[in-house]
């Protein structure tokens, strides 16, 4: 398959190891990955903060950039984020519709139909749960709210993780509880966000896991920041980074996150 990667703005700028791992993983599975250079952001931050007018050009840019998928240029769009996929699927056409951009709204809906969160792409579209990964670490998985409730990815991420050789999956108590990030909520209601974070950090630590994984770097940035502040030693890693790891090219949980120097997910050539 020819798959277009929507890297997400936050991972592009802050956590490039996640989209790089997606490239590694999909190429290892025999697919071609394309990175359309015009992309920037899905517009979720603007929408969820209430700046719908300011979201319009951001959404327009996303739709314009990925529109070729509807003409068969690519077979699918993959997004290593549940909440960005959710925004693409459930918000973009609404934003354009409200702005009176009816035909662009239809185009957005068409692009969204071919857009998948990573675990959805792997399990539903590509039909794989065992991606041939090797990751000999104790891991716990936090189902992020939007992947869980907006997308309904269900247990797909866990199925993928269970198929990883050497990986020990530790159940997380109160797993479905929100970590308290909520985008700008973490700034506008900083104390409440921190209280939620404290509880999440405590349950993660209780698992005894070495690595916390999730399908969204935004939530991982939040929980990871708490894990680091608490000196817990638990490393946050995106699901893609674990799935990209093999015996030949292992990904080692970095001291902070997963290898800030970029050494961890070198693409196999």
């Amino acid at each position: 398959m020819r798959i277009a990667l929507a890297a997400t703005c936050i991972a592009d700028a802050m956590f490039p190891q996640a989209p790089r791992a997606v490239v590694t993983l999909l190429e290892r599975l025999g697919h071609e990955v394309v990175f359309p250079a015009g992309q920037a952001c899905c517009g979720q931050m603007h929408v969820n903060t209430g700046y719908l007018a300011d979201a319009v050009p951001v959404v327009q840019n996303h739709v314009r950039t990925f529109a070729p998928v509807t003409d068969g240029e690519w077979d699918a769009v993959v997004v290593p984020s549940g909440s960005c996929t959710g925004s693409i699927r459930h918000q973009q056409s609404m934003v354009l519709e409200r702005a009176g951009l009816h035909s662009e709204a239809r185009a957005a809906a068409a692009v969204a139909e071919l857009t998948y969160e990573l675990s959805e792409l792997l399990v539903d579209v590509l039909g794989v749960t065992d991606v041939g990964a090797w990751f000999p670490h104790r891991v716990t998985y936090h189902p992020t709210c939007h992947s869980l409730r907006m997308l309904g990815v269900g247990d797909k991420p866990e199925r993928l993780l269970r198929a990883v050789e050497g990986l020990e999956l530790a159940p997380l108590a109160e797993a479905e509880g929100c970590c308290g990030f909520g985008g700008t909520f973490s700034l506008k209601n900083a104390e409440t966000s921190a209280a939620m974070l404290d509880d999440k950090v405590a349950t993660v630590v209780d698992t005894g896991a070495e690595v916390l994984t999730a399908g969204d770097w935004s939530c991982l940035m939040h929980i990871g920041g708490g894990l680091s502040r608490g000196g817990t030693g638990v490393r946050p890693m995106h699901l893609a980074e674990i799935l990209a790891s093999t015996r030949e090219s292992p990904v080692v949980p970095g001291r902070h996150g997963s290898g800030r120097s970029g050494a961890t997910t070198e693409v196999a050539r």
Binding site: V47, G86, H90, Q91, M94, E97, R98, M150
Partner: peptide, 10 residues
């Protein structure tokens, strides 16, 4: 009636 809801699921 033309304005849709913000619509996580519409």
């Amino acid at each position: 009636s033309s304005a849709g809801a913000a619509g996580t699921t519409g």
